[in-house]
Design a binder for these strands. Structure first.
Lengths: 204, 204
DNA sequence: AAACCGCTAGACAGCTCGGTATAGTGGCTG
DNA sequence: CAGCCACTATACCGAGCTGTCTAGCGGTTT
């Protein structure tokens, strides 16, 4: 019990850390359903029993992955980078699409992990699907905040529309539409302008 | 060989028809990956061997389902209804969202079958995924046509943006966002208006 | 030294999957 | 009547899945 907390900093990484890392890589790149626990354990260089000692079921492992995805992808990458790239709230919102465009061109682009997890769990009450809804809400809350700062008339509605554009263009890009993200950005710009806001310092 | 063509009209439906119908219902409502061939055969009231006599593999059955989906969903329903509902090209485009809204409220709403099929096949060269891209292109061609008739400046780009809105709002609705479709429609209206087109006879 | 602990390795249960093999049945046609 | 044909029923294969069990190893603590 006490041992779990004091993982020494400079070690070759504990079993749990390797499990988390392997699950993150595999579930991100492919999806939760298509990756088996044996694959995760093998990639982590860990015995299967060790994995099941840390996570009592694959569902729990999947939930841990989604939390990690929120931490690394949503918070650190998406949120962090947009805040950094944009000077004004409007520019930050548009920066989302700049990030998406670069991301979607990477060979390991896997579309949205949350969307995949959502669509591959048919039962709406499944814990994974419930968690996904929470993660979508997290992203939404971030968008709502920016929409408020930008001075939109209806931040909740605006954020939802923005999120629809985000999801839609990621899937279109995944389907092979190279310019979907760029063109979705144009719609975003239009949406911003319709609020009477000059998308300050916009790049195109 | 000759027997296949002359299916008598008023019969209790042939084995093949029942297979097609069962596959359509099950693959539509759930997804291709989550439904096994045994389930399809059972639902069709057909022996598994009969199914494999008509379709040599599940992939072939899936491809037949996608073709049927294009025929029934894309052509008959989406395309047919929008043409019927809208007086002008702009109104037809907006009618897509009216259809989506009613559809997304149905208890058996399953999000877009093409999108699901796309996301659950990781290999970009998989025949199912290739076929899905073709079906997305079919919808796009229909949108391009309407965009041309509406007089948009860049019909190809406009159609892509419209499709991004369509996909995005369906997934948002599937995630439980009841008003996602309606708000996506508002973006569509904005997009139309930005082309200098009064969305003639729009209903809101 | 003894107890303990996290971990390993591998077998295994029980299930579902796609796909195959076999034997047999009922009806239409020569 | 005989042959054919689409179809049925059922067993089966090999693979993969989640999850469990066991036996043992190596290092730390008391």
């Amino acid at each position: 019990m006490a041992a779990r907390a004091k993982s020494p900093p400079g070690r070759p990484s504990s079993a749990r850390e390797r499990i988390d890392h392997a699950a993150y890589e595999l579930f991100s790149r492919h999806s939760i359903r298509t990756i088996g626990v044996d694959t995760v354990a093998a990639r982590a260089g860990v015995a299967k029993m060790t994995l099941y000692k840390h996570y009592p079921s694959k569902d729990q492992l999947a939930l841990a992955f989604l939390r990690r995805r929120e931490e690394l992808w949503t918070r650190s990458w998406l949120q962090g980078e947009t805040e950094r790239l944009g000077a004004t709230p409007g520019a930050k919102l548009l920066a989302v699409f700049d990030l998406f465009e670069a991301w979607s061109r990477r060979p390991d682009f896997e579309a949205c992990a949350f969307t995949k997890a959502l669509l591959e769990h048919a039962d709406a009450r499944h814990p994974v699907r419930v968690a996904v809804r929470g993660h979508i809400a997290t992203i939404r809350a971030f968008l709502v905040e920016l929409a408020k700062e930008a001075g939109t008339r209806n931040p909740a509605r605006f954020a939802q529309q923005w999120q629809v554009l985000m999801i839609g263009c990621l899937i279109a890009a995944y389907a092979g539409e190279a310019d979907a993200v760029r063109n979705a950005r144009k719609v975003g710009r239009l949406l911003l302008e319709s609020e009477g806001l000059r998308a300050a310092r916009a790049r195109r």
